[in-house]
């Protein structure tokens, strides 16, 4: 393993992570590894190690953490967060780190596509012909009474994501 050089650490990274209430608790970790021992994703992908990611984050290894492809493996099952003896909010911290990655332009193309669906249709999973057919057969209205049926409601969502600049943030 390479030596960690303190001069290359970003000490502001933990401050940025700590903007999320509770996320600062990652510095309380004493490496008991209970989080990873119970992690269902680590059972399948040993390379995915939330303890290591959060440890590296609290040390200030910003680039390594943000570019770690395993950052996106967590299913947010919250098992680790519930079990942590130190009360570390692992998942909340990981989600905050992901938002910092996105802010730095690091995002999977497939996730960009999901973001685009909500920006366009107000739904991550919009209606399709098959669903319309099924709805009719069940005696439901073909179009559910959600944002996809009311243009003025969709306008509200469009305006909202425009205000938060979500489109710019998630488009390459």
């Amino acid at each position: 393993m390479d030596t960690i050089k303190t001069a290359e650490l970003d000490h502001d990274f933990i401050k940025e992570i700590s903007e999320e209430p509770g996320a600062e608790k990652i510095t309380l970790c004493f490496n008991c590894t209970g989080c990873t021992a119970g992690c269902p994703m680590a059972d399948l992908e040993a390379q995915y190690n939330i303890r290591k990611i959060l440890r590296m984050a609290s040390l200030g290894m910003k680039d390594e953490v943000l570019n770690n492809p395993y950052l996106w493996y967590c299913t947010t099952c919250y098992k680790c967060q519930e079990r942590c003896p130190q009360g570390v909010q692992n998942v909340d911290a990981l989600l905050k780190i992901r938002t910092i990655a996105v802010k730095n332009g690091i995002m999977l193309p497939k996730h960009r596509a999901v973001a685009k669906l909500v920006i366009e249709y107000g739904h991550a999973v919009p209606i399709n012909d098959d669903a319309k057919e099924k709805r009719k057969k069940l005696g439901l209205e073909e179009m559910p009474y959600t944002v996809q049926r009311f243009p003025e409601s969709l306008d509200e969502v469009h305006k909202l994501v425009e205000i938060t600049k979500f489109g710019e943030l998630t488009t390459e």
């Binding site: 999320e20 299913t75 947010t76 989600l95 905050k96 992901r98 938002t99 996105v102 802010k103 995002m107 996730h111 999901v114 973001a115 909500v118 991550a124 938060t164 979500f166 943030l169 998630t170």
Partner: peptide
Amino acid sequence: GVFRSFDK
């Protein structure tokens, strides 16, 4: 899991 991961 996705949208909170993108932008709070």
